[in-house]
Design a protein around this nucleic acid. Structure first.
Length: 586
RNA sequence: GUGCCCGUAGCUCAAUUGGAUAGAGCACCAGCCUUCUAAGCUGGGGGUUACAGGUUCGAUCCCUGUCGGGCACGCCA
C-alpha cells in the first residue's frame, strides 16, 4: 500500500475546485476556501460541492452545465476514483478505497495526535469560564459551564489554536464582604456571642466550617467589641431589618471599623479557603486553568480608574444624580449604565470594562466568555464599552450556556438550598461520577436547556451513552489482549482486505474525525464530539456483532486488528477532548 | 409591557449553518448468546419541522406576523 499519508480530503478537494474555477473563469471573485461537505448517502459519493449552483446566477448558465465544465477543468488527483454531476448540479466526489485504507496507518502513527490539525494557525484564543464568585461551593449550574468551557478549550486547542484558559475571580466586591461578615458572625457564635444572623447573609454550613477553623486556630483572638457591630441598629429595628441590604451594608461597615487590620485577615482567609475549595473541586473534575485573574488586581493596579478615564476622555461619561454614567445607548444598549455609584464605589460593570480592556491589551485574537444564559442582557453594555474604547467588539464572543435541570425518578430534582437534594457540583460528581457528569453536560447544544437525568447517568446500561462509548473501547482492548500481540508490529498489513460495507463506513468515520473537531471549534460546539463518538461506537458495536476478528486467516485478522486499533485510538482521543476516561476493562 | 433565546417522532435531542429521501437514542413490537465482554446486535411501525404568509433553483435554517415556553430588564454581582 501507499506509505505516503493522504491529505485531508476536504482540503484537497477544495483546492482542486479552486483550480478548476480559475480555469473556467478567472474573475469569479472566489479566493479560496471553497466549501466541501460530506455526503449523507453513499450513492452521492464521499464528498460533495454545491459551487456550480452558486455560480448559476452570476454566470447566467445552467448549474449542471457549469458542473460539467468544472469537472473537466479539475486537475488530476491520485486519490479520486471518479467525479459526477448529480441532482440539480451537485458535484460528487468518490474517493479511492485504497486512499481511505491508507489513512489507517496515519491514525496509528499519529496516535494521540490524530484528529489535531493546524486549522487555527496557532492564533491566540482566550476562553474565560466558570468565574463563579468564591463565596461558596460550586453548584450544578457552574458544572455545565465548567464542562463546556473545558471541552471547548480542548477542542480549540486540537484544532490548532493557542488557547489560554482563564478564571476571573470576583474577589473585590460586596459579596466577598458579606461572606467575611457571615463567617465572623458564626465565629462569634462559637465564642458564645449571639447576634441574630441576617437572612440574606450566607447561610450555608461551609460558613460555619470556616468559622470553626478560625476558632480552632485562634480561639477568641478575633472577638473585638461585638456590641459595636450593632451601632446604628438598636435591637428593635435590627429584627425588622433582618433581611435588608441596609443592615448588611451597616454590618460590613461596622465590622471593618471594629476589626480594622483583622478584617483583612478574615476577608483573606475566607477568600483563600473558598477559592482553594473551588480549585480542588474543578481539578477533580478534570478542569484546569492557565490563569486565575483577580478582580482586585484591577483596582490595585489602577486599571479600573484607567479604563474609566479613557471613557471620560472620549466623552462617553456624564454625571447624574450623583453617579457617573456611561453612554452605552450610543452603541445600541437599552439604557445608559452606571460605572461609579453615588457613594464613590465603582460598579461591577466598571471593573468588567477594565477587565475586558486588559484582555484586548494582552493581544488575543479571539476572546470567548462562557456565561450563564441569565447574563445575556449584559452583552450589549460590554460590547458598547469596547466600541467606545475603539476596540473591535467582534473579537469578543459570548457563549451562553443554558441551565441544567436535574431529574430524579422522572421528576425535577429541586435545586433549592433548603431541600437537601443536591445542589453542589461535588455532590453531583459523587453521585454519578466524573465521566458521566462531564459527558452529560456537553451532550446537548450549549444554548439548549439540559435535562440531566440522574438515574440514566448512574445506570450501567445500554441506555447510558457514556458507558456505551466506553464499552466499545473496552471491547477492543479485550480483543487485542486475547490476540496477545503488539499493535506496534502491525505495519505490513494488507488493508485492502477491509472491503465490506461496515468496514468502509468505519474507515470514512475515522477519516471524518479531524473535520468534526474543526467544525466543533468553528461553532463552539463540543457536543458535536459527543454525537460523533456515539455514532462511531454504534458502528463499531454493529461491526463487532457481525464480524469475527480473531480468525485463522492471518492477513485478514491483521487487517481487522489494524482497523479496530485505529477505532480505539479515535475513541480515546475523542473522549479525552471531553475529559472522559477510556477504561480498558469494564 | 420591551429585548434576547427556543419550539423537530409519544419522550430526550441531532441535522455538516440555505442543499439531495429531516436522522439517532429511549419507549413500544418481533428476533439474536456452547464462538473475541448481551453494558451488545438485527428488523418493524412512528413527521404537514408550533401555525400562517414571504424571499429562490431549493427553507427545519433567512424575513414578517400569530400562538406557546424560558431568561433578562438594579447606583446587585
Amino acid at each position: 500500500m501507499d506509505t505516503a499519508a493522504p491529505p485531508n480530503f476536504k482540503d484537497h478537494l477544495s483546492q482542486l475546485m479552486f483550480h478548476a474555477v480559475e480555469q473556467i473563469r478567472t474573475d469569479s471573485g472566489i479566493q479560496s476556501g471553497i466549501e466541501i461537505v460530506r455526503t449523507r448517502q453513499t450513492d452521492h459519493g464521499d464528498y460533495s460541492c454545491n459551487l456550480a449552483m452558486q455560480l448559476a446566477k452570476p454566470l447566467r448558465k445552467n448549474p449542471r452545465e457549469i458542473a460539467a465544465l468544472l469537472i473537466a477543468a479539475l486537475p488530476p488527483s491520485p486519490y479520486l476514483e471518479k467525479v459526477e454531476v448529480a441532482g440539480a448540479g451537485f458535484i460528487n466526489f468518490f474517493i479511492k478505497t485504497a486512499a481511505k485504507q491508507a489513512c489507517l496507518y496515519n491514525i496509528l502513527q499519529r496516535s494521540t495526535a490524530y484528529g489535531t490539525s493546524d486549522y487555527g494557525k496557532k492564533r491566540e484564543i482566550q476562553v474565560e469560564f466558570v468565574s463563579a464568585n468564591p463565596t461558596g461551593p460550586l453548584h450544578v449550574g457552574h458544572g455545565r459551564g465548567a464542562a463546556f468551557g473545558a471541552s471547548l478549550a480542548n477542542v480549540l486547542s486540537a484544532a490548532g489554536f493557542t488557547v489560554t484558559r482563564e478564571y476571573y475571580v470576583n474577589d473585590a466586591g460586596r459579596q466577598m464582604d458579606i461572606l467575611a461578615v457571615s463567617t465572623w458572625l458564626r465565629y462569634l457564635e462559637l465564642n458564645n456571642i449571639h447576634i441574630p444572623f441576617p437572612d440574606n447573609a450566607y447561610q450555608g454550613d461551609y460558613v460555619k466550617v470556616m468559622a470553626r477553623l478560625i476558632y480552632e486556630a485562634h480561639a477568641d483572638r478575633y472577638v473585638h467589641h461585638p456590641e459595636k457591630l450593632l451601632q446604628g441598629f438598636p435591637a428593635s429595628t435590627y429584627e425588622k431589618a433582618i433581611d435588608t441590604d441596609e443592615l448588611l451594608d451597616r454590618l460590613i461597615a461596622n465590622a471593618r471599623a471594629i476589626l480594622d487590620q483583622d478584617y483583612a485577615y478574615i476577608h483573606n482567609f475566607v477568600l483563600t479557603e473558598q477559592l482553594g475549595d473551588c480549585r480542588n473541586d474543578l481539578m477533580e473534575f478534570g478542569v484546569t486553568f492557565d490563569t486565575w485573574f483577580s478582580e482586585q488586581s484591577l483596582f490595585d493596579n489602577g486599571l479600573v480608574a484607567h479604563a474609566v478615564r479613557e471613557l471620560e476622555e472620549k466623552k462617553f461619561l456624564y454625571r447624574q444624580d450623583g453617579a457617573v454614567w456611561f453612554r452605552s445607548t450610543e452603541f445600541g444598549d437599552e439604557k445608559d449604565r452606571v460605572v461609579q455609584r453615588e457613594n464613590g464605589q465603582y460598579t461591577y460593570f466598571a471593573s468588567d470594562i477594565a477587565y475586558h480592556l486588559n484582555k484586548f491589551e494582552r493581544g488575543f485574537e479571539t476572546i470567548i466568555n462562557v456565561w450563564g444564559a441569565d447574563h445575556h442582557g449584559y452583552i450589549p453594555r460590554v460590547k458598547a464599552a469596547l466600541q467606545a474604547l475603539a476596540l473591535d467588539a467582534d473579537k469578543l464572543n459570548i457563549a451562553l450556556v443554558q441551565f441544567a435541570v436535574l431529574y430524579r425518578n422522572g421528576k425535577k430534582a429541586s435545586m433549592s438550598t433548603r431541600s437537601g437534594e443536591f445542589v453542589t457540583l461535588r455532590e453531583l460528581r459523587q453521585e454519578v461520577g466524573n465521566d458521566a457528569a462531564r459527558f452529560f453536560y456537553v451532550m446537548r447544544k450549549s444554548d439548549q436547556h439540559l435535562d440531566f437525568d440522574l438515574d440514566l447517568a448512574k445506570s450501567q446500561s445500554n441506555d447510558n451513552p457514556v458507558f456505551y462509548i466506553q464499552y466499545a473501547h473496552a471491547r477492543i482492548c479485550s480483543v487485542l489482549e486475547q490476540w496477545g500481540g503488539d499493535t506496534a508490529t502491525l505495519t505490513n498489513v494488507d488493508t485492502n482486505l477491509l472491503a465490506n460495507a461496515s468496514e468502509l463506513a468505519l474507515l470514512q468515520r475515522l477519516i471524518d474525525f479531524p473535520d468534526i473537531i474543526i467544525a466543533a471549534a468553528e461553532e463552539f460546539s463540543p457536543h458535536l464530539i459527543a454525537f460523533y463518538l456515539r455514532e462511531l461506537a454504534s458502528e463499531f458495536h454493529s461491526y463487532y456483532n457481525s464480524t469475527h476478528f480473531l480468525v485463522t486467516n492471518i492477513p485478514l485478522m491483521e487487517a481487522r486488528l489494524v482497523l479496530i486499533t485505529a477505532i480505539r485510538q479515535v475513541l480515546r482521543n475523542g473522549l479525552a477532548l471531553l475529559g472522559v476516561s477510556a477504561p480498558e476493562k469494564m
